[in-house]
Amino acid sequence: MPVNIPGGTGPNQGRFGTLGRNTFRGAAFYDFDLSLVKDTPFGKRRSVSELMNVQFRAEFFNIFNVVNMGLPSNTILGSGFGLINRTAGSSRQIQFSLKAAY
């Protein structure tokens, strides 16, 4: 918050404007995740105690590999004001796992 209005303090130096709350927003953020799970019984079926369960799992994070842009720079006196120079989130990641349990 500015102190002593004429010069202000902080990176933007000066008074707050009359622009409403949340009127300056960054780009939308899209993140689609998917998980597939397959449980398979394994072993002898006559004795329940020897029957085990094998679980295969496939997890996909950001499955469509959408590039999410970061927020624009908001330092008014900076040379890159309003420029987006980074991404937000991560790229597509795939993870497989196999678990055996009694």
Rank of each mutant, 00 (worst) to 15 (best):
G43N: 04
G26Q: 05
P11N: 12
I5H: 01
N74L: 01
T23A: 06
F60M: 07
G17P: 02
V54I: 05
I94V: 15
N22L: 08
N68C: 06
L19H: 10
I84T: 03
T9W: 10
N62A: 02
L34G: 04
K99S: 11
L19A: 15
L77R: 05
L77T: 12
G20P: 12
L34E: 01
S47M: 10
S47C: 08
G43A: 09
G80L: 11
L34D: 04
L98F: 07
R46F: 08
V3P: 13
G14M: 04
R21T: 12
D31N: 15
P72D: 03
P41M: 01
R15Y: 11
T75R: 13
L77G: 05
R25G: 14
S90D: 02
E50G: 08
T18L: 13
K99E: 11
Q55M: 13
G17R: 00
N4S: 03
S91M: 11
G80A: 13
Y30S: 09
L83A: 13
G26L: 06
M69L: 15
N12E: 00
A28R: 14
G82L: 05
V54W: 01
G89N: 02
P11M: 10
D33E: 11
F60S: 00
P41D: 08
R57H: 04
P41Y: 12
L51R: 15
S97Y: 00
I84P: 05
T87A: 04
S79F: 05
A58V: 08
G17V: 01
G82A: 05
K44T: 10
I94F: 08
I63K: 00
F81T: 02
L36N: 12
E59C: 07
P41H: 12
G7S: 11
S35D: 05
E50R: 13
T75Y: 07
I76A: 03
T18N: 13
K38Y: 06
G80R: 09
V3K: 02
V67M: 02
N68I: 03
P6Y: 04
A88Q: 15
F61L: 00
L51Y: 05
Q13N: 07
I94G: 00
G7Q: 12
R45G: 12
Q95H: 07
A27C: 07
N53G: 12
G70W: 08
M52Q: 14
T40L: 14
P72V: 01
Q13V: 05
L34M: 15
N12Y: 00
F56P: 11
P2V: 05
V37S: 14
F81W: 02
V37E: 09
I76R: 09
V66T: 13
F42D: 05
S47V: 12
V48P: 13
V48I: 14
G78V: 03
P41K: 10
M52R: 15
N12H: 00
D39L: 11
I5P: 07
N12I: 01
F64H: 10
G26M: 03
R92M: 07
M1G: 03
T75E: 11
P6D: 04
Y102V: 08
P72L: 00
G80D: 15
A28P: 06
G89P: 08
A88L: 14
R86D: 15
S79M: 06
L19W: 09
F24P: 09
F64C: 01
L71A: 13
I76E: 11
G8P: 09
G8Y: 08
F56I: 10
T23V: 14
K38C: 03
L98A: 14
M69N: 11
R57E: 02
K99F: 06
K44F: 08
M52T: 11
